[in-house]
């Protein structure tokens, strides 16, 4: 009933818990899969991310065009216009509430930032990032990536339902999310602030101007939505109840096939 596990520092005598499962065969094996810190930060992050997305959309709808450079206003050459996609300026304005958007966007940006710093500091310190999130060199071979991708395409494959460590593609997407995407979103976000741009004018140079920062921030929003959609689909494909329960309680029930 014991499963060998390669869990880094989280591994310990508590890792395997035998519990009674009244519905199934009587006894099943449970595994401590996620630490407190990862669980709490993850769900705070989901709430903050949800509010950031919603409030960000509200802010965007109030000015539904994107430009490049320092300058951009209605009538100035735009690189994206929502009106080209069938939603007129006025319709967008009615859908979006700028005041609500700004209040909640900046509030949850702080929640997101503080939560993210706790998560990053804690998990760099404990080795979680190195042991469980950072892809190993041998995982990054193209043959292996191809195999994993093929595996990903099979909804509910036994290997995915029983996996107790992250797949390479999963690791890569988490690492990109945490160490590339989040910092870029943060910087393109604050580059739009006139007070921060005055303190750190290099931010404007880095992104090519305030409107460029706004455009990159909006492209980032689309990538964020894609990440969440794929992430949630992956969770569903890998055994929704068991996976989500594990992210809440920390305990993962090792499926029968693996025992």
């Amino acid at each position: 009933m014991l499963i060998s596990s390669s869990f880094g520092p989280a591994a310990g005598k508590d890792d395997f818990v035998v519990a009674t499962d009244p519905v199934r065969s009587g006894v099943s094996t449970w595994l401590r899969l996620h630490t407190y810190n990862v669980r709490i930060c993850h769900w705070i992050n989901v709430i903050a991310g949800g509010y950031l997305l919603l409030s960000g959309i509200h802010i965007f709808l109030d000015f539904p065009e994107l430009y490049w450079g320092h300058t951009g206003y209605q009538g100035y050459p735009a690189i994206f216009k929502l009106s080209d996609w069938g939603i007129s300026w006025d319709e967008a304005g009615e859908m979006g509430n700028r005041m609500w958007g700004r209040n909640y966007h900046f509030t949850f940006a702080w929640v997101f930032l503080i939560n993210g710093m706790v998560y990053a500091a804690w998990n760099l310190w404990t080795g979680h990032v190195r042991d469980r999130l950072w892809p190993r060199r041998d995982e990054l071979s193209s043959a292996r990536l191809r195999d994993e991708l093929a595996e990903q395409m099979r909804w509910g494959s036994p290997a995915r339902a029983t996996a107790t460590s992250y797949g390479t593609l999963q690791k890569v997407s988490y690492v990109l999310m945490i160490f590339i995407f989040v910092p870029v979103m943060l910087l393109t976000g604050i580059a739009q602030s006139p007070s921060i741009a005055a303190a750190w004018p290099w931010l404007l140079d880095l992104f090519g101007g305030r409107q460029s920062a706004r455009t990159l921030h909006s492209i980032g929003t689309v990538l964020f939505v894609l990440f969440v959609v794929v992430h949630v689909l992956e969770v569903l494909a890998a055994g929704a109840v068991n996976r989500i329960r594990a992210m809440i309680t920390g305990r993962f029930r090792v499926p029968e096939e693996a025992q």
Binding site: I59, F60, D62, F63, H70, T71, G72, Y73, Q74, Y76, R98, R102, Q192, S193, P194, A197, R210, Q211, R214
Partner: peptide, 12 residues
């Protein structure tokens, strides 16, 4: 200077 409107536009 750049006028930065809270709505999203900016103009110099």
């Amino acid at each position: 200077t750049a006028h930065v409107c809270e709505q999203g536009w900016s103009a110099i």
